[in-house]
Amino acid sequence: MSREDVLVSTEWAEQNLGADKVVFAEVDEDTTAYDGGHISGAVKLDWRNELQDPVRRDFVGRDDFSELLSSKGISNDDTVVLYGGNNNWFAAYAYWYFKLYGHADVRLLDGGRKKWELDGRELTKQEPQRSRTNYSAQDPDRSIRAFRDEVVNAINTQNLVDVRSPDEFSGKLLAPAHLPQESAQRGGHIPTAINVPWSKAANEDGTFKSDEELRKVYGEAGLDDSKDTIAYCRIGERSSHTWFVLRELLGHSNVKNYDGSWTEYGSLIGVPIDNPSEKDSTTQGA
């Protein structure tokens, strides 16, 4: 897997607008961005209302994913180019999700919506008309998704990469600072996790750093290449960004995304937590 197989530039994207078998999809939690203007021909994927199960805390199942992509006019043999706001957080989540359901050729637009806008490239409000397809998702690939018990067992044995900001890692903040401070019952991080904020992997314009720069970032942070790795954040979208970097760009073989992330872990009864900002309030006892 090389960078060209998983990542496209804004120049490439502009040259391939309307190309046969290439489908652009904007992925956001707040879809007002898409509605206010999107890349020509791009379909909309609503992270909350289309990719998440409406009842259980999980994403949609195989059949629902097949139905969703069929309704969007995406075929199994299409090249799907994902992009979005928030430095591609939700697009990276969708990338991981497409891979989990076995889509063959999916790529991220390097820099996402931000780079496209900073480049001054055109956006349109016109929604594309795509014919319905008969998409068939594969069984979920569990080798790229971590669940809570596996995460607890990974303490002291695998690489745990907490990709949240330093203040979330230390327990000072419970959520990213553009959101009201709410979420998990406890602050802090999973013991033995290293803190490599997702932003270390990106330039200010949202594009990914070079492979050489990325190797340096994770090497200096103490990521052990010989061990399996689990990445987590708060709800699993920023960690998808880092999962993409480690597995798809740097080619590490066994990297999982823990999409339960801190909102799950920080609310579990009885699991160990490190909270440097509040050393007395460890939840290990009582």
């Binding site: 939690e29 992270w47 990213p176 959101l179």
Partner: peptide
């Protein structure tokens, strides 16, 4: 309140 990471208006 939001559960996700999209910024409020």
């Amino acid at each position: 309140m939001s559960d996700g990471c999209g910024a409020p208006q």
